[in-house]
Simulated assay, not measured.
Amino acid sequence: MQPVKHLIALLLFAIATTGLAAGNANAASFDDAQKEEIEQIVTDYLLENPDVIRQVFGKLREEDSKREQAARAERANRAKQALAENKDELLNAEDQIVFGNPDGDVTIVEFLDYNCGYCKQAFGSMLSLVESDKDLRFIVKEWPVLGPQSMEAALVAMAVTQEAPEKYWDFHKAMMTLRGTADKESALRVAEKLGLSRSKLEALYEDKSLIKPIEDNYRLAEALQLTGTPGFVVGDEVIPGFVPAQALQSKLESVRSCGSTTC
């Protein structure tokens, strides 16, 4: 059978199946034998012309890619708007501890979880940047999204900020290099090694007000369209996921140069 006839058969099959799905009376005129014949014609055509299948799947992938790009662009736009609306809280929250230079000219904000492997992978980059860039502000947003144990560790971190804010950076470094699961007990052991009182931290741990900054971080992360840890904010850009030090450094330089991560 010629390709044109194959194509006609393919169209007939599409019309038939569409009509059947819609309850079309004309579609009912195809008996079982005819439908089997049409199906065989379509199958034979596709087997003889595999490029048609590749073209169809290529078109589907292209359409999926376009939809995903549009969705990413929409998320980025919503995140940028949320960043503008929440900038003061993001950068100057009450009782917020700033690492690096509190008066630095550029700020990196990181949303993290102490049980997040990618956060720990990113920590080396953050440590290098804080130590090498004397004009960098670095803000940690405790965002325990990986279960109850992560919440326990975050609450101990909040207790440390209340009891000994000057030791929070050392506590943070120790937690980010901790082996095993981060939870209340492991976080308390880290704090004890830094000379902090377990009993005082446990008393603070029970203070319900410690949950408020974490709840605020949840709200901010949701507004910024973050879906998991780590998540970064640099200048006017929200960056979901792990970012190498070199890429972050490039964005910092751009912000200093033109006020945006994309000059």
Rank of each mutant, 00 (worst) to 15 (best):
E68D: 12
I211N: 09
L20C: 03
S125K: 04
S254W: 07
K193S: 15
D32V: 03
K193M: 13
A191T: 10
I38T: 11
A82E: 10
N115I: 00
G23L: 08
L220Q: 01
N217K: 06
A182M: 05
L7C: 13
S260E: 11
V56C: 08
D105Y: 11
E63C: 05
P230N: 08
A182C: 04
A79H: 00
D51L: 15
E237K: 13
D88N: 13
N92Q: 13
L252K: 02
S186I: 01
G23Q: 08
R137T: 07
Q149I: 06
K66P: 01
T229K: 06
L194N: 01
L10F: 11
S186A: 10
F13W: 15
F30I: 10
E39P: 00
F171T: 02
A70P: 05
F13C: 13
L248F: 06
K184T: 00
A122R: 01
K141Q: 04
N217T: 09
C263P: 04
W143S: 00
G228K: 06
Y168K: 05
L178S: 10
V234R: 04
L127G: 02
A21Q: 14
R137M: 07
E94N: 12
W169D: 08
I53Y: 08
E166N: 10
L194Y: 03
E237I: 05
Q96G: 02
N115M: 04
S65M: 12
M175W: 02
S128D: 12
L91M: 11
L220N: 00
G58R: 08
V190T: 06
Q81F: 08
P244H: 12
L10W: 07
A164E: 05
R219E: 12
L224F: 06
N24D: 15
G58C: 06
L11M: 15
R75E: 13
T181Q: 14
E48F: 09
S260C: 09
D135N: 12
A203I: 11
I214R: 01
A93H: 08
Q55V: 12
G180L: 07
A221N: 04
E163C: 02
D113C: 03
F57C: 11
K251G: 06
